[in-house]
Amino acid sequence: MELLVAILIGVLFMIGTYLILTRRLLRIILGTVLLSHGAHLLLMTTAGLKRGAPPLLGEEAAAYTDPLPQALILTSIVISFGVTSFILVLAYRTYKQLGTDDMEQLRRQEDE
């Protein structure tokens, strides 16, 4: 199971990196989204994919999974959700005001 998830993470990072290296702004943002998914999965996997009951009161199971990575991932997902929605709006605004979503044309000009 760990191996499969590891491959999945690798694929996510691969596609994310590829998308980040392209020129269109929307693709770059999608790339960062995929990268953050990969990072969250990685966080879950490195903490160990254990079998056990969910860490809730009243389950009375023999083994529980570690709740900490799940809490970390939830926090991280919320943060990346907020940041992603912000950058989407920002990208849309930039596109409307500057008339381009090509990173080549978003370069800094001299004397500003």
């Binding site: 980040i20 770059i28 943002i29 960062t32 990268l35 953050s36 990969g38 990072a39 969250h40 990685l42 966080l43 879950m44 996997t45 490195t46 903490a47 900490l68 990575p69 970390l72 991280s76 943060i79 990346s80 940041v83 912000f86 950058i87 920002l90």
Partner: peptide
Amino acid sequence: MLVNMLSSVFFVVSVGFLY
């Protein structure tokens, strides 16, 4: 933002490895 989002992803990855 893009630079910092990227570094945040790496922050999460590093925390994952450390944990």
